[in-house]
């Protein structure tokens, strides 16, 4: 169907959604004077053993927490930032002894690697990249992609890490003639990378050769879309986008996520599913994360909403806890848990 006929996901009423679908597993108390900005869960190697750890990021400190038992966590490392504030954690899959972070004020100015020296386990940080960084994403096979500059002087770079976390290799991808805003790796086609641009195109690269394979212009209904996930299946690309700038409409309500299908050969696309806010839920998309077929979003109302993209509707709503609005939501990279964060630094882990 053409995009204007995009199927709208069912809009169940708020009170029919059961927050009991989410069970609280544990909580991390992180009293800090600065604002909580990100959370992530990753494997960390200590003394030859890999442990599922949680990373919390405030503006001036990043902490690594290891599990004491199934309910309690212990802070084992902290890295401090006095000059440039932390903006986000950049998880790099397949790396077990290094955390990447993006630093800056509103826009990314630096990407740093945080690690521990093997001898005394003391915290170290290494500057990987600086400049006018527009987007960054950790990729499988210990790689990191970043874009710097705008359409006329844009550089898209892949950085590879050695097993010990040291920076090993650099490669450039052919830049498109539009500024790249977000990246997404493609599940099902290992060496393909997607990017979204400021003028609503999706670009496709070959990561191995650096070639720019295709530019697909998508519907202009919603500007500045963010690409969360991409899946390659039966010759088609299925792309999950979110729309932080979308306005509410009579026909589609308040759109949060959209599943788009693209034929990369013909550069044609159609919207197949639009996930809007459940009826009665006010606000719009603030930030979100997608893992497999489950999408989670923090709404401006301070509530977290979760959609099952296979069922096509919202399956759970998590209202603010202790009168504190949610500000962060991430899926764990080590299990199926949901990490929900509040501005004061407290992190709640749900199953």
């Amino acid at each position: 169907r053409p995009t204007e006929q995009t199927e709208t996901a069912d809009l169940p009423a708020c009170d029919s959604l059961n927050p009991g679908n989410l069970q609280l597993v544990s909580e991390l108390k992180n009293p800090s004077s600065s604002c909580s900005v990100d959370v992530s869960a990753m494997w960390w190697e200590r003394a030859g053993t890999k442990e599922p750890c949680i990373i919390t990021a405030c503006e001036d400190v990043v902490s690594l927490w290891k599990p004491l038992n199934s309910l309690q966590w212990e802070k084992v490392h902290t890295w401090h930032f006095t000059e440039v504030p932390v903006l986000q954690i950049v998880p790099v899959p397949d790396v077990y002894n290094l955390i990447c972070v993006a630093l800056g004020s509103l826009e990314i100015r630096e990407i740093r690697a945080l690690l521990c020296s093997s001898g005394d386990e003391s915290e170290k940080q290494v500057l990987l990249k600086s400049g006018d960084i527009k987007a960054v994403l950790g990729l499988t096979k210990r790689r990191l992609v970043s874009s710097t500059g705008n359409f006329c002087n844009q550089q898209i770079q892949i950085m590879s890490f050695a097993e010990d976390g040291s920076s090993k290799d650099e490669q450039l991808l052919m830049p498109p003639d539009e500024t790249v805003l977000t990246f997404a790796e493609v599940q099902g086609t290992q060496e393909a990378l997607l990017g979204t641009t400021t003028v609503n195109s999706i670009v496709i690269w070959n990561l191995k050769t650096g070639q720019l394979l295709k530019k697909v212009h998508i519907d202009d209904s919603y500007q500045a879309s963010v690409c969360h996930r991409a899946y390659s299946e039966m010759g088609l690309l299925f792309v999950v986008l979110s729309y932080p700038c979308a306005k509410e409409s009579q026909a589609f309500g308040s759109p949060v996520f959209q599943l788009l299908v693209i034929n990369p050969k013909t550069a044609r696309s159609v919207g197949v599913l639009l996930c809007s806010l459940p009826q009665g839920e006010a606000g719009r998309f603030l930030e979100g994360d997608v893992k497999d077929h489950i999408a989670a979003a923090v709404l401006t109302s301070g509530t977290i909403a979760i959609w099952d993209l296979l069922l096509g509707h919202c399956t759970a709503l998590l209202p603010p806890v202790s009168d504190q609005s949610w500000s962060l939501v991430k899926w764990s990279g080590t299990d199926s848990h949901l990490l929900a964060g509040q501005k004061d630094g407290n992190i709640f882990i749900y199953r």
Binding site: R1, Q211, L213, M234, K265, R268, V270
Partner: peptide
């Protein structure tokens, strides 16, 4: 959703586009 609107589909799209695109 009808895939007819998307045009002809190729299972080998990645290899085909890689052989057509400039190096």
């Amino acid at each position: 959703c009808s895939t007819a609107d998307l045009g002809p589909i190729s299972l080998n799209w990645f290899e085909e586009l890689s052989s057509e695109a400039p190096p």
